[in-house]
Amino acid sequence: MSDDLDLAQQKRPVLLRVDELAKVYTVRRGLLGRKKQLAHALAGVSLDLKKGETLGVVGESGSGKSTLGKAIVRLVEPTYGRIVFDGVDITHLPDKRLIPFRKRMQIVFQDPYSSLNPRMIVKELAGEGLQLFRLAKGTELDDRVGAALTRVGLGMDMLDRYPSELSGGQRQRVAIARTLAVEPELVICDEPTSALDVSVQAQILNLLSEIQSDSNVAYVFISHDLRVVELMSHRMAVLYLGKIVEMGPSHDVAERRLHPYTRALFDASPVLGPGVDGKTRLLLKGEPPSANAPPSGCAFHPRCPRAEAGKCDLEAPPLRSVKDNLAHQVACFFPG
């Protein structure tokens, strides 16, 4: 990367800054729910996002990646930490004052079968945001809805259809048109293609890339599919039990896989072609531990092949920049 480019990238304004964001749930157990347990769905996540940038977030189920996405747009109230959007601390803004920010931050969910109201037709679904934020009415509303639907590749013959009459890909297009119509600056994409076939996935991913290059919208792209995240993101964060264990330029993270968990995730991702003999893969043993009883020290140590007793099980490694690349951070005592 040339120095000029480096500099140009640093100069881009920061759109979103998240500081030590955490979400703790209280789980009641036992007879009459008298035993209380705390579950740390998010255990202190810090990151920032520039205008027009895509940050990919990967991790297994239960890693907190969806909670992170929802907490950023305050669909989930964070327990502690700070969310700063375009210079304004929105962490504790009351609902009324949050409305202008709701327009600027949107979210697209995984399952277009459950995220669209089955009783509304496409026209109403796509225009709901515009009406809600009082951005348009009358013919202007129709025009903007039409433009948004055309943008996502849906014809005008779709206007009066119900979601049940659409295919999975078409529904996801409606969901994208709906967020696009209000011209957001940040869109959280929470597994936007996980429920779709590969050929439809390609269409939707292309659409998201085109929209970004037209409008300079920033994405937080959440997925369990590493290939998709690497392709779509400028930077990538790997989440394990509510904490970032590695973050950096996507290509760098994918190439170097410094954290053993990152390595395991990439190794679990199928390679094209018969790879049965190439047995250098690091397959994870066991399942992710539960967030209500996180292991001591480094949360990954019980599944980690590099863990050293007396170190990893006692002390939690901090997220630190790698020596030769400040943009690349890893939380591991034995990276590499």
Binding site: L205, R227, L231, H234, H251
Partner: peptide, 17 residues
């Protein structure tokens, strides 16, 4: 249509996916 990121390098800001 299977995404293959290994064919592409690091994406820069402002550069489309």
């Amino acid at each position: 249509s299977i995404p293959d990121p290994s064919k592409h390098g690091q994406r820069r800001l402002g550069q489309r996916a």
